[in-house]
Amino acid sequence: MEEKKVVSIEDRIPKLKQERKKKTNRRLIFYVSLFFILISIVAYLQSPLSRVQHITVTGNEYVTNEAIIAFSELSEEDNFWGIKMSQRAAKVGEHPEIKEVQVTRELPNTIVIKVEELDKVAYVKKEDGYYPLLENGEILESVDVSSLSSDAPILNNFTNNTYIIEIAKELYALPHAVSSLISEISWQPSDANPYKVWLFMNDGYEVESTIRNFATYLKSYPSIVSQLAKDQTGVIRIGDGGAIFDPYEKANKEEDNETAG
């Protein structure tokens, strides 16, 4: 039989001591490394490197960067990692012209505020200029548009705020493909219909309609026009009774008769 080799305690002690020493050294290195990491984090958090260096605003057209940043209450004195994103987004969302807000971090030290403004649905014509009208019926009095673009219709003779709010909501509900065809909308109230409006279209037609259910009525406009002869122009009357087309000759005669009467 093979004899078992017996290792004496004296032989084992040096190996045990060596293993314990290695474990102790590893533990020491771990704690020292952890200590320096914590010291580095504390030093970083206390240094200017941990503060916000840049605040970027995107998505805004009418509301200024300065106004949005002011609502966010952000500054370059804020700690980059201590900012509560949802809280700052909620503050910007309190601005009456802002619909959606997202606040994010962008390394190394930039805060990005991405906003979505309320949609512009028209320009309100006043004595001193043209002012954008938002989807909620608010007129941006602080923005005087000196050079108009064709991205939204012009509202003429709208002097009552109630009707301005209603037409704004209707225009927002109207598909852009249809609202882009409208050049001007004039409010022409009558005793029979205080909601009456007269539209001048970009394709040469005129439309008589009403503010109530405006979006529902005007959705049918492209279909109505597609059924008319290309060289035929006139007034399209759209309302509860459907749509009626009056060529300009007939429309002019009716106006003359009304004047004579």
Results as ranks from 00 to 15, higher is better:
1 M>P: 00
11 D>A: 12
14 P>C: 04
15 K>I: 12
15 K>G: 09
16 L>Y: 14
17 K>E: 10
19 E>S: 09
22 K>T: 14
25 N>L: 14
26 R>Q: 12
28 L>E: 03
29 I>H: 01
35 F>K: 01
35 F>T: 12
35 F>Q: 00
37 I>W: 00
38 L>W: 07
38 L>F: 13
46 Q>T: 08
52 V>K: 08
57 V>C: 09
60 N>W: 07
66 E>L: 05
69 I>A: 03
71 F>R: 06
72 S>N: 06
75 S>P: 03
75 S>L: 04
83 I>W: 12
90 A>Q: 14
91 K>L: 15
96 P>D: 05
99 K>W: 05
101 V>A: 05
102 Q>L: 14
109 N>W: 00
112 V>N: 05
115 V>A: 03
115 V>D: 02
115 V>W: 00
117 E>Y: 08
119 D>L: 06
123 Y>E: 01
123 Y>L: 00
125 K>M: 15
126 K>M: 14
126 K>A: 15
127 E>Q: 13
130 Y>T: 08
131 Y>T: 12
136 N>W: 06
140 L>H: 07
143 V>E: 15
148 L>K: 10
150 S>W: 10
151 D>C: 08
151 D>K: 14
156 N>R: 15
157 N>H: 13
158 F>W: 05
158 F>H: 06
160 N>W: 09
162 T>N: 13
166 E>H: 09
178 V>T: 07
180 S>K: 10
183 S>Y: 06
188 Q>E: 15
189 P>Q: 08
199 L>W: 01
201 M>G: 04
203 D>Q: 10
206 E>H: 06
211 I>N: 04
213 N>E: 15
217 Y>T: 10
218 L>P: 06
220 S>D: 14
221 Y>W: 03
221 Y>N: 05
222 P>C: 03
225 V>E: 07
226 S>C: 00
226 S>Y: 02
231 D>V: 02
232 Q>L: 08
233 T>I: 05
233 T>G: 03
233 T>N: 07
235 V>K: 00
236 I>S: 00
242 G>R: 00
245 F>K: 00
250 K>H: 08
250 K>P: 04
250 K>V: 13
251 A>V: 02
253 K>T: 13
254 E>K: 09
256 D>K: 11
258 E>D: 12
259 T>P: 00
